[in-house]
Simulated scan of single mutants.
Amino acid sequence: MTQYLISMYQPDGIVPPPEVLGPIMEKIGAFNEDLQAAGAWVFGNGLLDPSSATVLKRNGGEVLVTDGPYLEGKEHLGGFDIIESPDLDAALAWGKRLAEITGLPIEVRPFASRRD
């Protein structure tokens, strides 16, 4: 089994009102339950707003610490799931389902092979 990162990107700005976001979050909850029931779920969670990020960057002999996201953009990583899947097609099926639920861009990417 290969592990895949399923990333959800959401637009910067105002969070949708509860009457819009509530039903989507319920469907995401059911999606996560289905991942777990299928034995595919490894870990997942949503992320706070990009303004909560802290970036550490080496600069010569020092590591600089700055507030905010590393890159400014119109979208940000809003959440992710790490799954185990027999192949890319199965992982893409999970990603497609999440895209249908959220209407947001979803990225599916395999992890590099581990070298133990």
Rank of each mutant, 00 (worst) to 15 (best):
D12H: 13
A99Y: 02
S52Y: 12
P69S: 03
H76D: 00
G60P: 04
I28C: 13
P69A: 09
K96W: 09
A112G: 13
G103T: 05
D34V: 12
M25A: 11
A37T: 07
L35Q: 01
Y4I: 08
E75A: 08
D49N: 15
S51P: 07
E100W: 04
S7W: 04
A91F: 05
A38D: 11
V65M: 15
L35Y: 00
I83D: 00
G39E: 05
M25C: 06
G13W: 06
A40L: 07
A90M: 00
A30V: 00
A99L: 05
E107Q: 01
L5Q: 00
I83T: 04
F111P: 11
E62K: 13
S113T: 15
M8F: 04
G61Y: 03
F80V: 11
P86Q: 12
W94K: 00
A53E: 09
G29E: 00
W94M: 05
K57V: 13
T66N: 08
R97G: 07
F31V: 00
V42A: 04
S51L: 10
K74Y: 04
G78C: 05
S7L: 14
S85W: 09
A112Q: 15
L98W: 03
R114H: 12
Y4V: 02
L48N: 14
T54I: 14
M1S: 13
P86V: 12
Q10G: 15
V55T: 14
G60Q: 00
S113M: 13
G29V: 02
I101A: 07
A30C: 04
I28P: 09
S7D: 12
K27P: 06
V15Y: 15
K57P: 02
V42C: 05
G29Q: 00
E75Q: 12
P17S: 08
V15H: 14
V42H: 08
R115T: 15
Y9G: 10
V20C: 00
L98E: 07
Y9C: 07
G44L: 08
E107M: 05
Y9Q: 00
A93M: 01
L56R: 10
D116E: 15
V55G: 03
V63D: 06
A38E: 10
D67L: 04
S85P: 07
L104P: 03
L98F: 06
E33S: 14
G73E: 03
V42K: 04
H76K: 07
G95Q: 02
G61R: 08
L5F: 10
M25S: 10
L92H: 10
P18G: 07
D81A: 12
A90T: 06
G22T: 09
F80Y: 15
A90H: 00
Y70I: 09
H76N: 02
P110E: 11
E75V: 11
N59S: 14
R114G: 13
L56D: 03
A90K: 08
A53S: 11
G73F: 00
I83N: 01
L56T: 12
I28K: 04
G29I: 09
W94V: 01
L98M: 13
A53L: 06
Y4G: 05
A30T: 11
G95N: 01
H76M: 01
E33T: 15
E107A: 06
